[in-house]
Computed example of a mutant assay.
Amino acid sequence: MKFSTFNTNSIRARLPIIVDWIDREQPDILCLQETKVQDRDFPVGPFNEAGYHALYRGQKAYNGVAIISKLPIEKPQLNLYNGNKEDARFMSSRIGDIPVINVYVPQGFAVGTEKFEYKLRWFKDLLLYIKDTYDPGKPLLLTGDFNVVLEDLDVYDPDKFRGGICFHPDEQAIMKEFFEWGFVDIFRKHQPDGSHYTFWDYRIPNGFKRNMGWR
């Protein structure tokens, strides 16, 4: 199966790009983050017309996650906690024989703030949920936007950002617990070299062309 993931930073703004891409690449499963749209306004029609099922949970202007799949999406769970008031950051389902979890982890704002502590708690709660729900000896796809740089080769200037938000030892330590449980960084397994990024800060002049990115 072909799996893909993409932080949309507003699905309505990126919809033509996404629809064109799935028509060209034909992924079996596409996980989306930061859809930034309420459920009643999610553009499900174009995905259905392209032959895909859609599971989505959003909120106005912030967060939001979705799973787009060629196969039916079964056993959906839309909350990490027991309640509907939490931010739209998590969803799990089963697609075929594979459980799929899609997350948008809190960014954390700045080290030492309450938002940073919330990020660490959220990560720990996600790991507890996984340990309580799944078997590390069986297939499980965990994907999304984790807002954590794991290694020096995952950022264009590690010395500049080391110890800051998204590149802090506390964040990295929690991520390592996911690998200790049984997860594998699939991208790094197949791309062991650096300079492969998924985020380029628009505030850096020509940052994309200069490949000044993060993963």
Rank of each mutant, 00 (worst) to 15 (best):
I95S: 04
K36V: 05
K131A: 14
M91K: 01
N82K: 13
I11S: 00
R89V: 11
K124A: 14
I174V: 15
G112K: 07
D87M: 08
V105I: 15
K115N: 06
E74V: 07
L153R: 10
N206E: 15
D201W: 13
V184P: 07
E74T: 10
E180L: 14
I68E: 01
C31E: 02
P76H: 08
L55C: 00
D170T: 02
V100M: 02
F199H: 15
L126F: 14
F6Q: 02
S92I: 07
N79T: 13
Y202K: 06
C166W: 00
R94D: 06
S10W: 07
K2C: 00
Y134N: 12
E34K: 12
G83F: 13
F3N: 06
N102F: 11
M91I: 13
L55Y: 08
G213S: 09
P27E: 03
I101T: 09
I98E: 04
I174W: 12
Y104F: 13
F199Y: 15
F109L: 05
E171D: 10
D159C: 08
D159M: 12
F183P: 08
A173D: 15
A54L: 15
L127I: 10
G96M: 02
A173I: 13
R215N: 05
K131M: 14
T113M: 05
G213C: 04
L71A: 15
M91T: 11
P158D: 06
L30N: 04
P43K: 03
G163C: 11
N84R: 13
C31N: 02
Y134V: 12
V19L: 09
T8D: 07
D193G: 10
Q59E: 15
P192I: 09
F3C: 06
I29S: 00
E180K: 15
G83W: 11
G83A: 12
K75T: 04
D152Y: 06
M212S: 03
G58Y: 06
K209D: 11
N102L: 11
H190A: 01
P76I: 00
W181D: 12
Y156V: 08
P136K: 04
N102E: 05
V111Y: 13
I165S: 01
F116T: 02
T35H: 09
Q191A: 08
Y129F: 15
N206T: 07
W122G: 02
M212T: 08
A110S: 08
G108F: 03
G64W: 12
F167Y: 15
S195L: 08
L30D: 01
P99C: 09
V19M: 01
V111T: 08
R12P: 00
L55N: 07
